[in-house]
Design a binder for these strands. Structure first.
Lengths: 340, 340
DNA sequence: GCGATTTCTGTGAACGTACACAGAATGACA
DNA sequence: TGTCATTCTGTGTACGTTCACAGAAATCGC
């Protein structure tokens, strides 16, 4: 005859069991779709669940199961990323698609400020995710150290120098792709090919320059390389202006990214050069930029979704305790349009 | 003398307590920075934590505390969003910044496929977040229904028709802003002003058209409105071409977004029109597009970060059980550059 | 010296679930 | 009817934490 206290909180297995006249164990078995639940019990439980509005508490389940079926996706320097890097969205979706298939939840965690770093570190160490995918980490990254200390299964997109050797890395073949597209540009008969080389302090930037140099062989001319700090439109404009001053006779340009290429094309047009008639321009990324320039850009297509998917695959494999290659390199594809 | 089993798992408060020679309670008090921990105990615990490498288990804490200090950020239709909507990144960052200040973790959840919907619904109902921010929900959204059923504190960015009235909504004043910028365009002496009206099936698209019409009053001419399906560059090109065929004498265009405006400008140039001399063009969003067109675009600046921050503020307030206005409308700002 | 405070500590319960185990039905078969 | 396998069910314990409570130790005023 004791009145239950007003149901302020959500229903639990216990409530369902009480309502259905069975035990916690049976409800648990039903919920998890195990064998050995009689038809009568099944019906009673179904009715009870509907009546009390039961939803399982994942947190409690995680606690006892000692795993969460979730992986974190850490985004550093989000501002520059979302603005500059057209691929981050694709990488996210690629990773999500693969994790989704494996019935894992992906949670994107943004690391912007100092506070974020600590909080995300706590989140990761708190046992709320089983593993983690990290994009655009820097060398001295605190998150990287936390992941390392926790020995948490991790996969990096890109290879930050100095990262833990226990993790996996997914990279694209920047060097090979840069070489291929430069060779292709040279094959159109260009004699004086320059490069606007961005972000040389990152592997990606340095490798693209290396590939460019390799493609030209002994025709390589250091004075035709114009370094710029960022993969950005305005960097492309500035770089092209300086390059043009130094080498007015130039007839081909490899821009380190599509955004850079777009800036370069704009500057070339202003300088009265026709693209591709006077100067052939090629970019890198096959981002949204590539189809918006006039003429449309010849460029290198990054398998962005593939990068995300591969990173996800590696984390999942690591979760299963499999042995893995330290670094996975994905090939790029050349997309030839009208700008060269 | 019994050897402890090999420490395969992570250390717990219990291990720390054992090592430090105190009780669980004392360790818990130390970790949570409560009063009443003696200096001796403090030192012993600090040493023990360092020795066994203890990190608190957030999942367990969440379970007993019945709250997580985390809010979900749900992104629908991510593909079109990341590609088309230049603001999603800003909204994310704005929300994250405010949540971060309140020491809450934001977890971005991507809803792409059917599977995602179910999984995210489970994630939300599972007690892993205290509240949720939702962008770009559609009318019949399953996630919306789940949130409603769970009575989970929620804030929407944008106002999907048919959404639960228990939630909060943050919107921008599309109508007012469209009206203002159209009036400003008219004030430059344009007599025949058209509009490329995108996404009329959404509130945002419909409201921008309404504002445009209101600005022109009885000078409004329905034949100068060209509807296009999406807020995209190519939609802008197509729309402008058709509009120009119908009204070759047109001297002003309000494009429903910057991407649309960029397409329109390109088409105008190809048709031999000078911008802004022959035709003045204005856009909407002040996205990255706006500074990349030539001439640079006059447009409406959306307080994107503000939208995210306001949504976060509303969720947090709801978490504290405060009474809230149903809808929060944020003002936009006109940014006048060279395109009109 | 003694009671009253203040500081500190340990213990048991709870959060909501999964899992192991024991045991109860049920049916099959000799 | 007795034995055995199969199907089904309930109970106790564990996951790692916080919190309330009781009680010990120290401090203080007189």
């Amino acid at each position: 005859m004791t009145t239950r206290p007003t149901r302020s909180k959500r229903a639990t297995v216990h409530d369902v069991a009480l309502e259905a006249g069975v035990s916690r164990g049976t409800v648990s078995r039903y919920v998890n779709g195990e064998r050995y639940v009689s038809a009568a019990a099944r019906e009673a439980i179904e009715a009870a669940i509907a009546k009390v509005g039961y939803v399982p508490n994942t947190a409690a389940r995680n606690l006892v199961m000692q795993r969460t079926q979730a992986v974190g996706f850490i985004v550093h320097e989000p501002h520059s990323l979302f603005v500059e890097d057209p691929n981050i969205g694709e990488i996210l979706l690629g990773a999500n698609a693969l994790l989704s298939e494996a019935d894992h939840q992906m949670a994107v965690l943004i690391v912007d400020t100092e506070r974020d770093t600590d909080r995300v570190a706590r989140y990761l160490s708190g046992g709320l995710v089983d593993g983690v995918i990290i994009v655009s980490a820097r060398a001295d990254d605190p998150i990287t150290r936390v992941v390392e200390r926790l020995q948490m299964p991790a996969a990096y997109v890109g290879h930050p120098p100095g990262a833990a050797s226990t993790a996996s890395f997914v990279v694209i073949d920047n060097r090979g792709a840069a070489r291929s597209i430069t060779e292709r540009l040279a094959a159109t008969g260009r004699r004086r090919i320059g490069m606007i080389a961005a972000a040389l302090d990152r592997d990606s930037g340095a490798d693209r320059l290396t590939g460019f140099r390799a493609a030209l062989g002994d025709r390589f001319d250091q004075t035709l390389v114009e370094p710029v700090p960022l993969y950005s439109y305005s960097a492309g404009r500035d770089g092209m202006r300086r390059l043009l001053e130094r080498a007015p006779d130039l007839d081909g340009v490899f821009a380190a990214s599509d955004a850079v290429a777009a800036g370069a094309i704009e500057t070339l047009k202003e300088a009265g050069r026709r693209v591709p008639e006077d100067v052939g321009v090629v970019g890198f990324d096959d981002s949204a930029w590539a189809r918006r320039t006039t003429p449309r850009l010849s460029t290198v297509r990054q398998p962005a979704a593939g990068l995300g998917a591969e990173a996800a695959r590696l984390v999942l494999a690591r979760l299963r305790g499999e042995d893995l290659p330290a670094e996975q390199r994905l090939d790029c594809e050349i997309v030839w349009r009208e700008s060269a």
